[in-house]
């Protein structure tokens, strides 16, 4: 069995990649990818922890949670992509740093 520690390392790396993408990129699609990566890092955590916490846990609630969150992330991505498509139609680009209609 792969030690839990390895899963935690992978999930931490995924989380770091997601946060890096979120703070460094301006393209709305890339931001969406970054958010999805963070969500998947959390899903990996949940699934791995269920496997290791099975002795004391009251059932595979972590894996159930991962299924829910995958479905919800898909719904969120669908709505997000719809908004980004509208952005592209209105502005001909999807860079959030170039969206400056509202004054800062």
């Amino acid at each position: 069995m792969v030690p839990l520690f390895y899963y935690i390392i992978v999930s931490t790396i995924l989380f770091a990649i997601g946060v890096y993408g979120l703070v460094s990129k301006g393209n709305a699609l890339r931001l969406l990818f970054a958010v999805e990566i963070v969500i998947n890092a959390a899903n990996l955590n949940l699934v791995a922890f269920t496997r290791y916490a099975m002795q004391t846990a009251t059932g595979p609630s972590g894996q159930t949670f991962a299924l829910f969150s995958i479905a919800i992330a898909a719904a969120e991505a669908a709505v997000g992509l719809a908004i980004i498509v509208v952005t592209f139609r209105l502005n001909k680009n999807v860079d959030v740093f170039k969206l400056r209609k509202l004054k800062n």
């Binding site: 989380f15 997601g18 979120l22 709305a28 931001l31 969406l32 970054a34 958010v35 963070v38 969500i39 890092a41 959390a42 899903n43 955590n45 949940l46 922890f49 972590g62 949670f65 969150s69 969120e76 709505v79 997000g80 908004i83 980004i84 952005t87 959030v96 969206l99």
Partner: peptide
């Protein structure tokens, strides 16, 4: 767009905390 990106990130962070 701005609300979506920030708010989606907030739910991702919340999910990580829950895990």
């Amino acid at each position: 767009v701005k609300y979506f990106v920030i708010s989606a990130f907030s739910s991702a962070v919340l999910l990580y905390g829950i895990s």
